[in-house]
Every structure is written in structure tokens, then in C-alpha cells.
Design a binder for these strands. Sequence first.
DNA 1: GCCGCTCGCTACGCTTTCGTCACAAGCTCT
DNA 2: AGAGCTTGTGACGAAAGCGTAGCGAGCGGC
Lengths: 228, 228
Amino acid sequence: MNPTILIVEDEPAIQELLAVNLKHAGFLVVKAGSAEAGDSAIRAALPDLVILDWMLPGQSGVALAKKLRQDERTRELPIIMLTARVHEEDKVQGLEAGADDYVTKPFSPKELVARVRAVLRRRAPHLAGESVDIQGLVLNPGTHRVTAGGQTVELGPTEFRLLFFFMTHPERVYTRAQLLDEVWGDHVFIEERTVDVHIRRLRAALEASGHQDRVETVRGTGYRFRGH
Amino acid sequence: MNPTILIVEDEPAIQELLAVNLKHAGFLVVKAGSAEAGDSAIRAALPDLVILDWMLPGQSGVALAKKLRQDERTRELPIIMLTARVHEEDKVQGLEAGADDYVTKPFSPKELVARVRAVLRRRAPHLAGESVDIQGLVLNPGTHRVTAGGQTVELGPTEFRLLFFFMTHPERVYTRAQLLDEVWGDHVFIEERTVDVHIRRLRAALEASGHQDRVETVRGTGYRFRGH
DNA sequence: GCCGCTCGCTACGCTTTCGTCACAAGCTCT
DNA sequence: AGAGCTTGTGACGAAAGCGTAGCGAGCGGC
């Protein structure tokens, strides 16, 4: 549920500075030391935002940004460019390459965290802790509250995370294994049928609030959340 | 807890005059010499109020004000415009740009401080040292006292700071780690479970004053203060 | 129409998490 | 220096939430 941020930066000191501050701000951090490593990391596990250094050994940050903008899967991936240069032409070039924001070194950690939040708020509101509203069913990650028509919906922690995932990924079928990965976290050993039980509990809570048939069963595959 | 004020002013003499008087009035002061520097300073550490000069080298104060009003993060940030001009059209333009108040040079320091307090009182009451009232539970930052229906609520210093934080950030869930950061201060090494104990003490004090269930437990995450 | 597979549902035991208490150390004020 | 209050911490019992097994029903294929 916490946003994952990929840092692509070759200088260990700056990489660490960024990582410490972002972690402290509640983000999950993945690091890469080159554009190529960053590219791999993105393919391995799609992050929610990328902080990309301008100058990198080998392939440059701008080149990677352009590449990411061409691939359909990463077209929407928010990018913040990091650079030591202060020339105006670079800024233009960076934004043309598809960067969402632009930070010049030296920067204050607070400023960077603020910019990360701002970009996430613009590009992926729910990751910035803003509430998700699907047809009167409102889930607020900040307050951990779910309401249906003003009425509070009572949910356990697992049901809350399950609903959060569904509401941020509606209209798409997920297998039990996928849901276990996404909602329970990777590398857990839990029976797949356990998902059924939590689906049942979630359905019961939603129906008690007047939301029938929001979670659909796709026989032989898994479940899907109705977004409309 | 003391409000932070950002001064964006290019003339050192006026900048200093403002800073001295505001500090004397108990405010924390941050200075910037241009609109661009001011913009960075705002992103680096969101101040509680901005004093913005009309005429600035480079980007003007009005332009910055408009920009601040467009960003969601700074939309609510109180702004006081400062100008040497006395033309009525400027005032209109300034207020249209989103300024909360308008002070013309030359000004008396006392007047400026008074206006700062007035704007804070209107936009963020608790920062002006005014009491926060949530459903009959009244907390006064100035006198450090809490009352419920006229009756004084007895609290230790830590419980007071905890309640203050909760009342100024109601309806939002905070983890124990976040509460330690916000209430105890950064970089302290204290067991997370200690938060539980202070929550318990706070609850006991509130319940003795007739406020049941104000602090809610969010299992697996942390605590939340009910604001309604 | 029968058989097998898949899913819904209930009940139960266990793990995790939380609330509470008691105590000792620290701080402040006199 | 001493008294009194405040605070941090460990321990323990309670409760909530969770995972799993088992059974029955429904759907689909042959």
C-alpha cells in the first residue's frame, strides 16, 4: 500500500541520502546504480515513481526517460529528474523527455519529498493518501475509513487492504495467487482458499452497507471488482 | 508549535525589519530574496504563512501567489502581500491573485504583526494561539489548558502534546512511529509500545471528563482521533 | 442426467496485537 | 538534597482478527 520509489543514481552518498529520507517519509525504496540496472528494476517490479539522475555512467537518465515513455507499460510512470546542471535548456530537455518534475542538486531532502508527494498527488491520487470514490463507496487511506452514503463500513485490517486493492484496480480479474501477493504481501505461505473467506467477509460488510454484487466471481480464475 | 513565517523580500533592510519584529512576536522566520528562492523554500519546508513582496527581481510576487494558489499543496497557505504602491487597482489584483491581506509600505511593525495574527486566526486558529474546540473539548495552546464543559482536564505534558497533535490532525490514522516523530520529536529512541501507555493515560483523562471513545484504535496500524 | 470440480459458508483454534498494571528512573521545583 | 510528579519500559492477560479444515451446494462438461 505504501508507494514504492525507484532511485536511479550512481553516487552512493546521494543515493543513500535520498533513500533515508524517502523511507522516513513512509515510502518503500528500491535502488539502482545505472540506467541499465534501473531499467531492469522497473521490469522486475514496477515502482510507483522513479527518481532519475541526469548524469549516469553508460546510458544517460534522459535516454532512459525517453525509453520509458515509449513503452506502454511505463508510459504513465511518474518520473522526477535529478541534475547538477542549472542550465535552462536542460530543464526543457528533461521535461520534453517526459519528466514530471525537475530537481537541481544540491537539493534539500524535505523539498524532494515534497515534490515526490506533489507528483504522486497529480499522477496517482490514491498513492498520495487521497480518498478513492467508486459510486458512493468511499475509501480513505488517510483515515482508514470506508463509508457508503455517509455510513461507516466496518472492516478488519485484511478486508480493508483487500478492498483498497480492488478499488485501485477495478474491472480486472485477479487470481487468488495474485491477490495473496498484492494484499498479503509477497513470500507468504497461505492457502489460496483463504482468499475466498476474506472475499466472503468483505462481501458481507459491503452488502450490509447496501453495496450488492461489487465483488464478482470469475469461475475457474478468481475475482473482479465492479467499477461501474 | 510556533508558526513559521516565510518572508519573500529583496530589500535587505525591510527583510531584516520584518524578521526582527516577527521573531520578537514569537514566530519562527525563514527568509528568501526572490520569488524563485521563495518557491524553493516553500517546497523545502512548508511555512504556516508567507509575506510576499509585490515587486521582486525576476518573477513577481503576484505571479508566485497565483502559482501557489494553483498547487493543491499550497492552496490553503495564507499569504500577505507587501507593496510600495498605493493604487487601488493593485490591491484588487493582489487579492484576486489569492492574497489574504494587503499591507502598503511604509508600514508599522506593530500593524504588520497584528495583520499576521489576524490572518492566522482566520485561516489556522490553532497557530495563532487560539483554542481549538472539537465538540466541547477545548484545548488552549496559549494557556496550556484543556477544558471539557468548563471543567478542567488534567494532563501531563506529553499527554497534552499528544492531544494537541490529535486535535490539530483529527480523523487521520497515525502509526506509533509517526506519533513518536510528531509528538516526542524526531530522532528519539523510544519503544513504540510506550505510545500505547500514553494513549491509555490520555483516554483515561478524557473519559473522566465525559469524552468517551475519542481516541480510536486502528488495529494493525495505529490510532485516530475522532473529530466528529 | 450424472459426475467432478469449484466455490460459498461456518466453526474453531491459534497467533498477533492491544490494554493495563506496576515499578523504577529521571526531572523539576522548592 | 529531598519530595513529588512525570515518564519509559517490561510483563501479562484479554480480545480481536486471522487462517484452515470441512461440508454442502451449484455450475459445467461429457
